[in-house]
């Protein structure tokens, strides 16, 4: 067994501490130490993108990053997208457009698309496809996911005051 190292990570706005083996990935820490099982592992070699989270605002593969590397970082996972008031505009748009089927790739796409929309609030369809081309979905053929991102971008334009705040139909979370 390898050495245990103490880390503190801000996860979805909350400071969390853990003592983790150096060899454990960030995905392991999120899932096993913090119980945040929304982050999924699809390949564990950095290709499928299901485990994508935001580290200091930028998308990162949590299967390729060690937990200890996240010490001091600000991490956002899929659990951090919705607020007490409801889902994010992107989540709402994905619900509306039937973005996903089995849901396993979903956390990675949502985090990647969240990062895209923060950087480029009005992407073209090609820009969406390019930004999501590092994430694999086996169910949908991608069109519904692309439609969801484009709809989220439109919603933000149509209702700028609501952007990423309270969405129209709330769900119990």
């Amino acid at each position: 067994m390898s050495e245990q190292i103490d880390i503190t990570v801000t996860v979805n706005g909350e400071a969390r501490s853990a003592s983790v083996e150096a060899r454990r990935t960030l995905a392991d820490v999120l899932r096993d130490e913090f119980g945040l099982t929304g982050t999924h592992l699809g390949c564990e070699h950095g290709v499928c993108g299901a485990c994508t989270v935001l580290v200091d605002g930028a998308p990162a593969r949590s299967c390729l990053m060690l937990g200890v590397q996240a010490d001091g970082a600000d991490v956002t996972t899929v659990e951090g997208l919705a607020t007490d008031h409801g889902m994010s505009t992107l989540q709402e748009a994905m619900w509306e457009r039937h973005g996903f089927q089995c849901g396993f790739c979903t956390p990675g796409f949502l985090m990647q698309a969240t990062a895209l929309l923060q950087e480029n609030p009005h992407p073209t369809e090609f820009e969406v496809r390019e930004a999501l081309s590092g994430n694999i979905c086996r169910c949908t053929g991608y069109q519904s996911i692309v439609d969801g991102v484009l709809q989220a971008a439109r919603s933000t334009t149509d209702h700028p005051q609501e952007a990423d705040q309270v969405s129209a139909s709330q769900v119990e979370l």
Partner: peptide, 21 residues
């Protein structure tokens, strides 16, 4: 009708219950 899926609120918020969970 393209009724919105009842599966989606849990799946979209990271609250699914997959085997590794």
């Amino acid at each position: 009708a393209s009724v919105k899926r009842s599966e989606d609120p849990r799946i979209l918020t990271g609250r699914g219950n997959y085997i590794d969970d």
